[in-house]
Design a protein around this nucleic acid. Structure first.
Lengths: 212, 212
DNA sequence: CCCTAAAGGGAACTCCAGTCCCGATAAGGG
DNA sequence: CCCTTATCGGGACTGGAGTTCCCTTTAGGG
């Protein structure tokens, strides 16, 4: 009756961990080089030097594999800037996003992971959790700025950070517009101007928790 | 020697047109109901009541089929608002985007088409053209506002319109935040505040043409 | 250091997406 | 109204993705 947990959850160490590591690296490589549509479990098994059966048993679908990779990425998330100045913090954030999205490997990887999220519900949840973690990390810049009096009280920190990234992802996904430092600086400046004008009120209810 | 053009280009009328119409409708249905990953040419043929061979010959891949659907959508693009007031025009635009993205069929269809663009270069070009058309249509609101003195001269109309949509798509794709009228109004207000602050300077070079 | 069973891996099997071949239909010019 | 040939469509064929069976390896508790 007891539903058996995910394979690999009872004995997560040793060979199981090595297999996961090799598989996630191979999956990241294929996603970055050829996109989500090319994520074939059989090929990942071959590249990772792992049994094909293992891939189908532990992950089962390309979407689940992408979700596991996103989990891994969220776990190894980097800390934010602390310049003591919102303007520079937001610019740092925007430039980091641009640098990531234009990075030959990272940019393609992110595109592939967003595609995965659009094709698979499990990957979508993992992607949303990933961005919740990233936004929560950088929201501290805005919280500090409010305390320093640089931004109006009652500004929603998460919305400001999201507003910095949004036009950059819109350029990446929807319009195909070029992403460069100028685009980053425009994104940061627009978010800052809107925040100063009080355009980011908090949600009516409590802000969503980082870990749903 | 002369490269034969796309099948269907020489005799585009009659049966060929009916086949395309039925196929695009079936493709839209499947994309909206089950996503890009489920777009199988054989199934589309069956649903459209069309020969399987025809699908593989005329479109060949799910990505090309999605691209053709995007072309069709760009061709039947609707006109913008003309309230004589940027604030209301931008709010109309934001609410239209939210209404589209939360529509049970349209929202899922857009997600699927963005997924297609992330998996297929041809679909990506078609998606970028689609948004170029939509943004160019609504950019008129900003151009008019500049003439009326509601926004600073030198404001890039395309960027303002993109800034309205960007946080809405970011919520849809990246964070999974809820999309409602409040989100639309916040997006319009933030874009307007940034525009009034002069945060949308024109590109250094000439603005990209609508039809690349 | 052992033992149990969790996890991995090899190999055969199934099924269907994608291809190929060729005859049937009808678009569109003359 | 006819003719050429672009386009459509049925059916057979094939390679490989995904499944299944079962044996091998080894994680982790004692």
């Amino acid at each position: 009756m007891a539903a058996d947990p995910q394979p690999g959850a009872v004995r997560p160490g040793g060979r199981t961990a090595r297999v996961r590591e090799a598989v996630l690296r191979a999956a990241g490589d294929v996603l970055a080089e050829r996109g989500f549509g090319a994520l074939d479990l059989g090929e990942i098994a071959r590249l990772a030097g792992v049994g094909r059966t293992t891939l189908y048993r532990r992950w089962g679908t390309p979407g689940a594999l992408a979700a596991d990779l996103l989990q891994d990425m969220a776990d190894s998330s980097l800390p934010r800037s602390r310049n003591g100045d919102v303007e520079r913090d937001l610019r740092d954030n925007a430039r980091l996003v641009v640098r990531t999205l234009t990075h030959p490997r990272q940019g393609r990887l992110f595109k592939a992971l967003i595609a995965a999220a659009l094709c698979d519900e499990q990957a979508a949840r993992a992607l949303h959790r990933f961005y919740a973690v990233r936004i929560a990390e950088w929201a501290g810049c805005v919280t500090d700025a409010i305390e320093r009096g640089e931004l109006p009280p009652g500004t929603d920190p998460h919305r400001v950070i999201a507003a910095v990234s949004a036009p950059l992802y819109y350029a990446l996904l929807n319009t195909g517009d070029p992403l460069d430092d100028a685009a980053a600086d425009r994104a940061a400046a627009a978010a800052l101007a809107a925040a100063r004008a009080g355009a980011f009120p908090p949600a009516d209810r409590a802000a969503p928790a980082v870990t749903p």
